[in-house]
Amino acid sequence: MRKGIGMSAPSILSLREVTIRFGGLTAVSGLNLEIGESELVGLIGPNGAGKTTAFNLITGVYAPTEGEIRFAGRPVTAKRPHDLTKLGIARTFQNIRLFSSLTVFDNVRAATQLHRSHGVRMALWRGAAFAAAEAEVERGVMELLEIFDLGRVRDEIATSLPYGDQRRLEIVRALATQPKLLLLDEPAAGMNPTEKAELMRLIRFIKERFKISIMLVEHDMKVVMGICERIAVLEYGKKIGEGTPGEIRKDPKVIAAYLGTE
């Protein structure tokens, strides 16, 4: 599990020649991408470059028209989102999507579904085994909430929290599924510089503490350049560059995509 960081690590996710077309529009075209174990990868690109589409392909929201996606060594092309979560892919959303009628605690609790042993029968019988399993769930959820300083608001309605806390809660909820790969869709959207700095600390912390791979789609260059070990750049659905933040900063193609050419 706990291998070294960087390109040499075995890849947890790999996209081979992944293409998706919506009618005549090719949103993502021949995308190749590898994410190593415990690696922090950024996916950037101008508006409409296909970043979120790529994200939705990885998480099973869309099925690719062509190409193959492999996760942890097995093909997962066109698997449904909840099956992918079972295999270890968790995500957050660009526009926060918390469960709005549930408390902070229950939002995270709902995401522990996969790892509980009890279902309908135990819930109805309510025996000692059920109580023990629920106590275990509660302990796990509270531990997660405490790590991220959300334990104090456990009984608040999730959507009544301040914006920054909601973003954090969404990440906590994703972590409760015990993922191997965490996908963050524009986590810095709508944040001020202080919150962004806080977010960067948080992402680094998650990677260290949970030893998972993280991929983020982000607009904010400072955030991406600041934390990512490797960056892939998309433009018009095609990957136009990939490398360390230093390499990406100097890549003429990337500069052209962002600033235009003479």
Partner: peptide, 17 residues
């Protein structure tokens, strides 16, 4: 809690497994 999660946001619920 899954019933309510499905009601609140089906896409988010399926992303949570």
């Amino acid at each position: 809690r899954g019933f309510i999660a499905v009601k609140d946001d089906e896409v988010a619920a399926s992303s949570m497994g």
